[in-house]
Amino acid sequence: MRYETAMNHVSFQAIRSASTPGLLRSARLEEQTRLYDRFTSTKIEAWNREAGELQDAVMSRAVSLCEEQFIEEGFGSPPASYAFVAFGSAGREEQTLWSDQDNGLIIGTNEDPEAKTYFDQFGIRLSQILEEAGYPPCPGNVMVSNPLWRKTAVEWEKQLETWREQLGWEQVRYLMIAADLRHVSGDINLSRRLRQSMHEIFEQTSPPEQNLAAAVLRNTVRHKAALNVLGQVITEQTGEHAGDFDVKYGLYLPIVNAVRYLAVEYGINASSTQDRLAQLNELEVVPFRWLESCLQAFHTALRFRSMTSYIEENGSVSGTGYLPQATLKQKEIRRELREALGTVKLMYRTLQRQQRYAERKWL
């Protein structure tokens, strides 16, 4: 066994054997420090994959700790099978080391009302354990503690169908959050079933006014590349981050959202941006040079996300999402950022033309 592999094994063993949320957080922070030390010497794809494996190990152990606590406290074992799933960057396997909570629960069949009470409390407790392990709560409340993201498999399917029928701005946003669903722990068959149901719901034929791809496109083009008409990078103008660049909303999410739209448009059932791009390439529905530029911009976005400033507080690490002004002054960083934003700008010009065409066709 290579030294590097052995180190990973030992570190992950500390995570998997952590007996309390506090010990889990300590093991996580130790492994994060080791991984961060290798950031500049590792390709972003490989580094990002390791970061995802680390986060999955921590989240899986948090689920096990929650079960163990419930058994110790007399609530017993889960009364039905369940799957703990990730959304957001975790669902797309694109986490930073300081990603917050974006998760949910799919629950198997049990008609006993006490089963619902059990999982209601289980979701609340699991969210607390994850927070103790260092994951800040999701600002949008996409968490297992929220009943909207904690449902039986049948309830999930009904909810997806309702969102699909309504297609308001909020419903489309929820559908796109759900589209990033990825299994982390528990009964994988529940996750597979829901992803298949989701794919079938997305592929339903519908009248023009209920066209899902068009609705997703309307939501998508709201985001713009952070470049002004002169090709200059748009930074924050006021506040504590004045002069800094918002990587998440200025670069990363515009790419993610555009590729997600294309995945919906062409019936691609994948949750990660990289897999969606690979499948778009296989389908040959988008020019290869366009996809190549998009992939390069995406890798730049991933790398810059993990270069953003962060805050350590009470043993937890939270990212600000901003690339500091001092970093932006580096010539190479500035060049890469402009190139990536230029690609995003071209992507959105294409999408805006598609939107105008779709609107004229609908009229």
Rank of each mutant, 00 (worst) to 15 (best):
R182A: 13
E203P: 06
S17F: 04
L97E: 02
T96G: 12
Q204Y: 00
E72H: 07
E132I: 08
P136E: 08
L130E: 05
T235C: 10
A340P: 13
V216H: 03
T205I: 11
V286H: 04
L54Q: 05
R360K: 14
E93Y: 13
E292V: 09
I268S: 01
P137H: 10
A6Q: 07
G239F: 00
Q121V: 08
S19D: 11
L328M: 08
L351E: 02
L217C: 03
G267I: 01
Q354D: 13
E4A: 14
G319T: 05
L24C: 03
V259G: 02
I234T: 06
A83N: 03
E132K: 11
K345C: 04
G91C: 02
L291W: 00
I129G: 02
E111W: 07
C294T: 15
N48F: 15
K361V: 09
Q121A: 13
Q69W: 07
A80W: 01
W149R: 00
Y322I: 06
A242S: 07
R49M: 12
M59S: 12
K345N: 06
V154L: 10
Q355P: 10
T308S: 05
L175D: 00
V256F: 15
R182P: 04
L363G: 10
M198L: 12
N211L: 00
L126D: 02
Q166W: 04
W290R: 15
A226R: 05
R61K: 10
S19Q: 08
Y135I: 11
S318K: 15
F304Q: 13
G88A: 10
K151W: 03
Q296L: 14
Q128E: 06
T300A: 01
T220P: 04
